[in-house]
Amino acid sequence: MIRDFSIVFENVDRLLIGLMNTLVLSTSGLLLSLLIGIVFAAALMADNRFVVRLTRALVDTMRCIPFLLLAYLVYYALPSLGLNFNNWTSGLLAIVVYNAGYMAEILRGVWAQLPRESIDAGSAFGFYGWNLYLRIILPQVVLAAIPMIGNQSIQVIKDTAFLMIIAVPELTHAASSIQSKYYVPFAAFISAVALYWAMCSVIEAGVRRVERIAQVRR
């Protein structure tokens, strides 16, 4: 067993490259999906009923299908429509599209719970439309949504593991390639699990910190 772990340790550079890919995919995917989610949340709270229905259908579809199915859809089905991406971009695209729906739903939920006073005060001061949304509503919504966004971030990190199936060189893919070369299944995958655990612990600690800051602000 110790010998197995030392084999993994000798190949730690491969594991770290996988970890880097997982980190880059998750953070860029999260940021992009949060940006799209911000627009979608506004669409979900819009006055125009057509806009609301269309966005609702889109968001609900994303929340209904498994992530892997969407990744396959982007990877295999988009090329048949003439859109070609490599594995890495397909993976990122799948993460962004999938999580934009979840982010929109998280932000909308928090927004609906927001006290009316600050929004009314904002409009009394002459803020309206996007200006009101981005400067008055959104900062409060994002701050209050941090715990849920943190949970979603953990979900995203775990979802990136699915991307090994479409040959994206992320952490689980790296562990799997070490295991298939040296046949050290336990050591390879346990090392990957430990790294996932570390990433999630960092996020949880970060969320707790932000929650404390949010409490002080209130």
Partner: peptide, 18 residues
């Protein structure tokens, strides 16, 4: 805490091979 952080794919591979 461990399982909450472990992707299903990784867990599946671990169980199947280990």
């Amino acid at each position: 805490s461990l399982i909450r952080a472990t992707p299903l794919v990784t867990l599946g591979l671990l169980i199947y091979f280990a």
